[in-house]
Amino acid sequence: MRRIAEYVTIWVPLLLSAGHVVLFTAWTTWMSFTPSTLMPVSGWVGWRNYTAVLGTRNWSIAFDNLLLFGAGFVVLTALTGLGLAILLDQRIRGENVLRSVFLYPMAVSFVVTGTVWSWLLNPGMGVQKLVNGWGWTGFRFDWLIDRDMAIWTVVIAGIWQASGFAMALFLAGLRSVEGDLIKAAQIDGAGPIRLYTRVILPSLWPIAVAVFVILLQFAIKTFDLVRALTGGGPGLATQLPALVVYDFMFQRGHIGRGSAAAVLMLLTLLGVLLPYGAWKLYRQRRAARA
């Protein structure tokens, strides 16, 4: 009897958790090859959903946006986080408070972040209106409604939300640089700038890779933030793959194509995660051999 309770306790949660990952991935992948529209149906249409999705303007624009947003968001967030970490590493007074301030946006939902930034960046009532009201009437900051610049408003909100997280990882890295290494460099007469560029930063790059991968993963999955900030607009200017999936599945009632788009999203994600996993494995093996 006790044996049975034991097996149930161990296996039911694990099988539900592992099972849904495997089953749902297979299920959605299978649906991407069916002619499902409003309801899932069986049948086989080969790659037709994929060619249809890849052929839509919606998807190609969303993917171009993702490349731009991904690059901008990842690089700028990582750099901001690194800058904050280096700053805090100078024995700044009140470090605990400052750290909490830089990190608090991470505790807030993307919906809240998107909503608040949509107000701040709205030229009719946000920063532009404020500056105009001060008397500088020619001041323009209307990226939110500018097709070419709207994607950068998502980047701005994203940096605000995630840079504290990058900071936390970099700061932990900075704090674990060996003191002897730093002392040796200082004895050799290295100034603060040389110390960072030659000794400290080079030892941080495994963390930098981790930060990049995590942020890239964030970027690929971005949905709520855009939904709340721009709704994908103006036009399709801030459309991203996650929104396209939702659009196909629940607004256009095309489950087959939505599933194909979801699989394409997953493949994009794997394109980031698999090389990273392989690289980590390689490093582990090498460390084990040394």
Partner: peptide, 9 residues
Amino acid sequence: LPEQMRLIP
């Protein structure tokens, strides 16, 4: 695993 892969299931 992205949430989009689990929505319909």
